[in-house]
């Protein structure tokens, strides 16, 4: 047990009979919930390492371009197809663009897509889960809807959605913003269901607890009840879903780009870089390795982070 039970000194009543009635005073200050979670999280070496690596990747991708000044779209046709060198640590591609700059630019898109799509799926899923768990009348229809979404073939539908809406969104928002909105929206709409199910289950259990009854007895409205009392208590499963959601979104985006139905070629993402590199597999196999390792490392670190977070947030495991 890492969590020390507060040491108790009996009240200093002594001789007076009323002494037995004085409350014991804890000598150690109370520990906050998040402090406990952090202590448990620290013990999970894989999760800690995963978190650090994920942070490093995000920093490298977003801050790196300030130090590495070659533009990702700058074409230097004389320096094409070069291997790793001091001027181009990751080499250059078939048009002489610097692979390191492209990896950073691609990483920005991939990580941004992952985080935005995760946020969208999380908001949708938590909303549906909270509403379905809290309002009994909506439970049936919303859960049937969730089941229907779970029965949809997601990857084929994602491909179809990208094919159908790419043109119109490109016209409305421009080619880059359009495809970004499309992919984030498509991934968000097709991956909220697990979160909704988990949140609903937790809300159903919470609703029967005494503190909810107490809050209701002092006249708390439904909105206040959900925001003040229910939502903070279902934050743990939501946070675990968030980490797994990032991993899932990054993989899905890369898969779409890999199938040639994601981002356009001049707008690099890790998946797109991998897809482009496959054509040169025989001559320059290292070009496949960079984006592939980037995707795998990011997803692996996020998954480990999620694993540790799940253990840390579960009060039954904590302290073991």
């Amino acid at each position: 047990m890492t969590e020390p039970t507060p040491k108790v000194i009996p009240g200093s009543g002594g001789a007076t009979p009323a002494g037995a009635l004085t409350d014991p005073v804890p000598v150690t200050p109370p520990r906050s919930h998040w402090r406990d979670v952090w202590d448990q999280f620290k013990r999970h070496k894989g999760a800690l390492l995963g978190g650090i690596i994920f942070l490093l990747i995000v920093l490298a991708v977003f801050i790196g371009p300030f130090f590495w000044s070659i533009d990702a779209t700058y074409i230097d046709i004389r320096a094409r197809n070069q291997g790793p060198s001091l001027a181009h640590p990751f080499g250059t591609d078939q048009l002489g663009r610097d692979t390191m700059a492209r990896m950073m630019a691609g990483g920005q898109t991939s990580v941004a897509v992952g985080i935005t799509a995760m946020a969208l799926a999380l908001v949708l899923g938590s909303f549906v889960g909270l509403i379905a768990g809290y309002f009994r009348k909506l439970d049936g229809p919303l859960m049937r809807l969730t089941d229907l979404f779970l029965a949809l073939p997601l990857l084929p539908l994602l491909l179809v959605m990208v094919m159908l809406f790419r043109g119109s969104l490109n016209q409305a928002f421009g080619p880059e913003t359009g495809i970004f909105i499309l992919i984030v929206g498509a991934i968000g709409i097709t991956s909220w269901m697990p979160t909704a199910r988990i949140v609903r289950g937790d809300v159903l259990a919470l609703k029967e607890r005494e503190f909810v009854l107490a809050a209701r007895s002092i006249g708390t409205t439904n909105t206040k009840m959900i925001i003040r009392h229910i939502l903070p208590n279902v934050m743990s499963p939501i946070m675990v879903s968030a980490t797994l959601g990032i991993a899932n979104a990054i993989i899905t985006e890369s898969a779409l780009s890999f199938l040639g139905l994601g981002f356009p070629p001049d707008f690099p993402t890790w998946g797109r870089l991998l897809f482009d590199a496959v054509d040169y597999l025989q001559q320059y196999p290292e070009r496949v390795i960079w984006p592939g390792v980037a995707i795998s490392l990011t997803v692996l670190s996020v998954n480990y982070l999620g694993d540790g977070l799940r253990d840390a947030l579960d009060p039954r495991i904590r302290g073991r």
Binding site: A255, G292, Y304
Partner: peptide, 18 residues
Amino acid sequence: SMLGFSVPTFFTGVLLIV
């Protein structure tokens, strides 16, 4: 197993081909 479901199949496939 963590590696198995973190590394996407399109990368393992390409890696094996290489």
